[in-house]
Nucleic acid binder design. Structure first.
Length: 411
RNA sequence: GGAGGGGUGCCCGAGUGGCCAAAGGGAGCAGACUGUAAAUCUGCCGGUUCACGCCUACAUAGGUUCAAAUCCUAUCCCCUCCA
């Protein structure tokens, strides 16, 4: 079951990672696992604080999936107990705590999305309330006695808050310890996390040592840049691709990323071998590979990962149809016009655009027409004041720019 | 508790009485180009109007002025320093 070739394993494991603590230990760990044919416990903890995930979150999931592919055991920890505190990482204020119901609800949607990446049949899912809830206070004391305040304050978030006289609750101090305790409970060999998790991952090592376990290897993954190519992918910045978006949308959004962040995406979001990615990079550099071809491949892989091969193919075809052949997509949303609302039997083109939400205002609609961006049944409209006869436009297709289509239905 | 700085359009940010619907950048939209929804270039980018204009807008509420984002007063919020 386990990939026998150590170099091959390393090749996949190290692809795209930000940092490994410690690389030498990782090597021996892997070769022992191969020798004894014993899969490693790969830990990934998720706090179900946000219900929706985007590609940025899948970086670490993809890495975990890669471990699964290599024959290791993925253990996904739902931080239902830790979520009650909230990870203080990157926070300058105390997180509002979530109700257990909300956490449960989040966890469900979170999981269903995470399993688009992970192989569900090979994933062990556990809630950390399983062991954190029944923990005795004496045990908590035992854990806390092994760490000092100074050690905790090494952490930047805490240090900043402390020196700025912002409150840090003792509870928050406990967070990294709880996460560390998770590692003990499942006997983690390797824990994955984002770069910001570095401190927490290290705590796991320390505590494992204290408990006489072999300390875990910590592997951190870099932050994924968003569609703008500059800032990190995040929902609030609007530069994200949601895991639940439809295939066409995902495909198109991937095609809209800058050529120069493509390789990062290949490294972090696909499971292609390192050398294949390297080759593509080279070929693009020397001109033998057109970047658009590579990007199509990327888009297609990402859609396939989240859906399936067919969806990826369809999305690719759809993209060709619209942007290469400049034709219409296969499926077009309908927009229903209610005759009753237009007793004259006519509707202004601008009104239609705003009513259907293609444009945000009449001025916007006028601008669009003015700039030559409106087509009705493939004919460019250039008259701002154009009035359309309801009978005539039934089942016709209006197009805004290159990407937005609506099929009119007059009822 | 004291001292100071600040709140501007979707975001960042300039503007300190009229030339301000408000520089510049980003995002967004459109056009050109392109085997890319890449890059690049061009235009647009509060609402309404064919247009002149009008309306709404620079934290909130009042006020001074022919005229305020800009001055005054009060209120709310944010930040920095001191205690």
């Amino acid at each position: 079951m386990i990939e026998r070739d150590l170099e091959k394993q390393l090749d996949f494991i190290l692809k795209g990672v930000e940092d490994v603590l410690l690389p030498d230990e990782l090597k021996t760990l892997l070769s022992n696992s191969i020798k004894n044919d014993k899969p490693l416990n790969i830990k990934l903890g998720l706090d179900p604080t946000a219900p929706d995930i985007h590609l940025g979150h899948t970086v670490v999931l993809t890495k975990l999936r890669q471990f699964q592919d290599l024959g290791h055991k993925a253990i996904l920890i739902i931080g239902d107990y830790t979520a009650r505190i909230g990870d203080p990482t990157g926070r300058s204020v105390l997180r509002p705590s979530l109700s257990p119901e909300k956490i449960d609800e989040n966890a469900k949607t979170y999981m269903s999305q995470a399993f688009k990446i992970l192989d569900e049949s090979k994933t062990e899912v556990v809630k950390n309330s399983t062991w954190l809830e029944p923990l005795k206070f004496s045990e908590v004391l035992n854990i806390t006695s092994r760490f000092t305040i100074a050690r905790m304050l090494e952490r930047v978030d805490f240090k900043k808050r402390f020196s700025n006289n912002l409150p840090i609750t003792i509870m928050e101090f406990l967070y990294p310890l709880m996460q560390a305790f998770d590692s003990i409970s499942i006997k983690a060999d390797i824990e994955l996390g984002g770069t910001d998790q570095r401190f927490n991952l290290l705590m796991g090592r320390e505590l494992q040592k204290e408990y006489g376990q072999k300390p875990q290897i910590a592997i951190t993954m870099p932050i994924l840049v968003g569609l703008d190519g500059v800032q990190k992918m995040s929902k609030s910045l609007g530069n994200y691709i949601g895991v639940n978006e439809n295939p066409n949308e995902i495909y198109g959004k991937v095609m809209s990323i800058s050529d120069n962040i493509m390789i990062d995406y290949f490294n972090l979001l696909t499971r292609l071998p390192k050398n294949e990615i390297y080759e593509m990079q080279n070929d693009m550099k020397n001109g033998s590979l057109n970047p658009s071809v590579a990007k199509r491949k990327l888009a297609s892989i990402i859609v396939e990962n989240l859906y399936d091969k067919n969806a990826a193919e369809d999305a690719g075809n759809n993209f060709n149809r619209i942007f290469k052949d400049k034709a219409m997509p296969e499926e077009i949303n309908e927009y229903i016009i209610n005759k009753k609302n237009y007793p004259s039997g006519k509707i202004k083109a601008t009104t239609l655009l705003t009513e259907s939400n293609l444009c945000s205002s009449n001025s916007d609609a006028k601008r669009l027409i003015d700039q030559g961006g409106l087509k009705i049944d493939n004919n460019k409209v250039s008259d701002i004041n154009l009035e359309l006869n309801l009978e005539e436009i039934n089942s016709k297709i209006i197009q805004k720019g290159r990407r937005f289509f609506l099929k009119l239905v007059v009822k």
